[in-house]
């Protein structure tokens, strides 16, 4: 019963016809494509991403894309296509772990803060707004640099950065709902706070949380790429898109465009996928608000 209350508004997003639906579908297609890529990487990658994939004499110079190496090789002879495939695992792991963590912390805090708008709310809001208004990538770099380079540490850094995003959205939504006649009625009927929050307010914020998840993940992918670019998610020779891009900067200037082109394209596409999901959903929500 409770699950269907959460899921129904979500399912209805896909059923109805509306202008932004193509964005939602395209976004889902892109994200699912990358998820499949990450899961199947060991089966479809033609080479080990951390092993020489060309004869030694060719390894001194990046090799251009060819049938054997659809995205070319980098300056130490690793196959870029295989590295992109494996890189998607790191990116998705970091971003999804971080987003889920931010959600798990931000949503309850937002609920509580919005429901009991008092001193706690004010203090939490100041803290969250301070972090929110600070450039996310700089904060993530600072945290990750102290923790040391690893995907899990990068995920922690990103999680800290994105908690306020969820918090602010859920708090605003909860505040609005708390002041509604509906919740007022539940209160006067003596429903316990826990029931009101979990059964009535939380399900109504679910669509908004989904929107934030989409847009937040899109942003997190770019921040992850930034961390990776700074060498803070993986260490050599492990693959990650941002890291590979950084390592390709010099080669790129010497005309080996593929050392940068494909990692950057992957970052953009995946970020675009999540952004389209968020945009499509938010358009649907705006439409519903207009109808009401």
């Amino acid at each position: 019963m409770r699950l269907s209350r959460v899921l129904d508004p979500v399912v209805s997003l896909f059923r109805e016809r509306y202008e932004g639906k193509w964005m939602l579908l395209a976004g889902l297609a892109i994200v699912l494509f990358f998820v499949a890529m990450a899961m199947l990487a060991p089966y479809i990658a033609p080479y080990d991403p951390t092993q020489l994939s060309v004869p030694l004499e060719k390894a001194l110079e990046p090799q251009p894309p060819s049938w054997d190496h659809p995205m070319g090789t980098n300056k130490i002879g690793y196959d870029m296509f295989s590295r992109i495939l494996y890189g998607s695992r790191v990116v998705l792991y970091v971003v999804i772990t971080a987003s889920l963590f931010s959600l798990a912390v931000g949503v309850p805090l937002g609920l509580v803060s919005g429901y009991y708008s008092g001193k706690v709310d004010r203090i939490l809001s100041i803290i969250m707004d301070s972090i929110y208004s600070f450039p996310g990538i700089i904060l993530a770099i600072a945290i990750a640099s102290v923790l040391g380079p690893s995907p899990s540490n990068a995920a922690i850094a990103l999680a800290v950065v994105y908690v306020p995003t969820y918090y602010r959205m859920v708090r605003g939504q909860t505040l609005k709902l708390t002041q509604s006649v509906f919740v007022e009625a539940l209160r006067s009927l003596g429903y316990p706070t826990r029931v009101i929050l979990l059964r009535h307010i939380l399900p109504n914020t679910a669509p908004v949380i989904l929107v934030v998840f989409g847009l937040g993940a899109a942003d997190a992918i770019l921040t992850e790429a930034g961390l990776s670019f700074f060498g803070l998610t993986v260490t050599a020779p492990n693959p990650d898109w941002g890291f590979d891009l950084y390592n390709g900067l010099d080669d790129f200037r010497n005309g080996y465009w593929w050392t940068i082109f494909f990692p950057g394209l992957a970052i953009m596409l995946l970020a675009l996928g999540f952004a389209l999901i968020g945009e499509g959903l938010s358009e649907r929500l705006a439409l519903r608000l207009e109808r009401e």
Binding site: A218, L222, A225, G226, F229, G242, L245, Y246, L249, F252, I260, F261, P263, G264, L265, I267, M268, A271, L272, A275
Partner: peptide, 9 residues
């Protein structure tokens, strides 16, 4: 969604 170092390059 463009990654800055990529667009810059």
């Amino acid at each position: 969604t463009l990654f800055i170092p990529w667009l810059g390059s």
